[in-house]
């Protein structure tokens, strides 16, 4: 048996280097994964239908912005009934407002315009407003995600 068959010796310094490097990598993975999971906030669960007030608080032709699931929601009462939309502009999420004067929904940030059925009809918004369902139950106005 020649010396070629003997296992190659790893110098002590290299071995220690590999051990330290390996341990550091193991610690990085063991600590990194929980860290990333911890800093990723949990998804928000919708709270279900929300009572936003009494029917008489919403005169015909008026609009009000209420907060549902921590999101602003625009509730408009027309002669035909209620419409509710997410009040977040689909352009850059500024909060939109109802203009009774022009009978349309407007984003004041960058002059985005939506029709009364939430369609984007002017300015930079790329999509219609998200619609929510509104029901009236025993005199209370209830909003819930569609």
């Amino acid at each position: 048996m020649g010396s070629n068959d003997e296992p190659e010796e790893v110098p002590r310094r290299d071995f220690l280097g590999m051990a330290v490097g390996g341990s550091a990598a193991a610690f990085a993975v063991a600590g990194g994964y929980p860290f990333l999971r911890f800093v990723d906030p949990p998804a928000q669960q919708p709270s279900g239908p929300v009572n936003i007030g009494k029917l008489e608080e919403f005169p015909v032709g008026s609009a009000r912005t209420v907060v549902v699931d921590e999101r602003p929601v625009l509730v408009i009462r027309t002669g035909d009934g209620f419409r509710a939309f997410s009040a977040l502009c689909t352009h850059l999420q500024c909060v939109v407002a109802y203009s009774a004067e022009r009978n349309q929904i407007e984003c004041p940030c960058h002059r985005g315009i939506y029709s009364m059925d939430g369609r984007n009809i002017g300015g930079p918004p790329p999509r219609p407003l998200q619609e929510l369902s509104v029901t009236v139950n025993t005199g209370s106005v209830i909003v819930s995600a569609v």
């Binding site: 909060v95 939109v96 984003c107 004041p108």
Partner: peptide, 22 residues
């Protein structure tokens, strides 16, 4: 959150260029 955003809302000045692009 119930108030509409201020008209002509501007981001901080160092984001103005990217704001204009968007």
């Amino acid at each position: 959150p119930r108030l509409s955003s201020p008209g002509g809302a501007m981001p901080p000045w160092y984001f103005l260029a990217i704001h204009q692009i968007l």
